[in-house]
């Protein structure tokens, strides 16, 4: 896989960037996600006009405008629904969906589990910084229950955080990986594999928020790569996820599952359908 870390000479990652300056804070992990994504696209040499990147609302969801792809910055939580409709209508496109932990797991949580279950050929990049950044620092579904730095929950949330990989596995996703924005080469590899995977692929990216979660700068010391290959055994994957501290990176689970696609059957015409109205 190491060859994935370097794009081929033919297409440069910059080819996929729009040149619009991101709104992100200095030191934000999302810069590295954007960089890794464009590297992955370059490695795959995907035609820009055949690739769509859709998102919801939040810091991470601003990513489409920073690429030179067909982008859609939709409404909070509904990015996967937008992507699902697009992919069903235009199966030949490469459809990527991106967003944050609040967008994808709180307001959009229902779409996330059903997208896993539907297993359409989409790639979902979940940029997880365990905080709502755009609204200035509230706890998200992946925030530690004792994090008491939010004015909204000054005593902490007292709720167990979601483990996105466990949620994805339980809901039926066929490709689950975790990356770290501090490891752009590793993240590029994961994104290449995720985009190539036929079916719904979830890439959780631990992407620090230096503004509201400055302690996440320490993640670079606690991240470690899995020392095993991806499994296609859901029981084994569940065991690994639950035994983990949430800081391992790599492909956790990869399996062949039926991919939802529009039914293709005997074709007819509207005129022929109208015959059924004749009494």
């Amino acid at each position: 896989m190491s060859e994935h870390s370097q794009p081929k000479a033919a297409v440069k990652p910059a080819f996929y960037k729009s040149g619009i300056k991101p709104v992100w804070c200095p030191g934000c992990g999302h810069f590295a996600v954007l960089s890794a994504l464009t590297k992955a696209l370059a490695w795959l040499e995907l035609p820009r006009e055949q690739t769509a990147l859709l998102s919801g609302i939040g810091c991470s969801s601003r990513i489409p405008a920073y690429t030179d792809l067909y982008g859609f910055h939709g409404i909070h939580g509904r990015a996967l629904a937008l992507g699902t409709g697009l992919k069903a209508a235009r199966p030949e496109l490469t459809v990527l969906v991106a967003g944050g932990d609040g967008d994808g797991l709180s307001i959009g949580g229902n779409h996330f589990i059903h997208a896993c279950r539907r297993n359409m050929d989409l790639t979902y990049i979940l940029m997880d910084n365990q905080v709502y950044g755009m609204t200035k620092g509230q706890a998200s579904p992946t925030t530690d229950p004792n994090w008491d730095h939010s004015k909204l929950t000054p005593h902490g949330t007292h709720m167990q955080p979601f483990q996105p990989a466990a949620l994805a596995l339980a809901a039926g996703a066929s490709f689950i990986a975790r990356g770290f924005s501090g490891d752009p080469a590793g993240m590029t590899r994961l994104l290449v594999e995720a985009i190539q995977h036929p079916g719904f692929s979830v890439v959780q990216v631990l992407s620090p928020c230096p503004t509201f979660r400055p302690e996440q700068k320490g993640w670079k010391h606690s991240i470690h790569a899995w020392d095993w290959e991806a499994t296609d055994d859901a029981v084994e994957a569940a065991r690994r996820i639950h035994a983990d501290d949430g800081m391992h990176t790599g492909i956790i689970f990869r399996a062949e599952r039926p991919v939802w696609q529009p039914v293709r059957c005997q074709q007819t015409t509207v005129e022929a359908i109208e015959q059924e109205f004749v009494p």
Binding site: F72, I75, L82, A89, L93, H114
Partner: peptide
């Protein structure tokens, strides 16, 4: 769809794709 929030956004996604 899984709910009406999804159905309207799926329809928008498809329409945006030209269909």
């Amino acid at each position: 769809a899984e709910d009406e929030l999804a159905s309207i956004n799926m329809a928008i996604g498809a329409a945006w794709g030209g269909v």
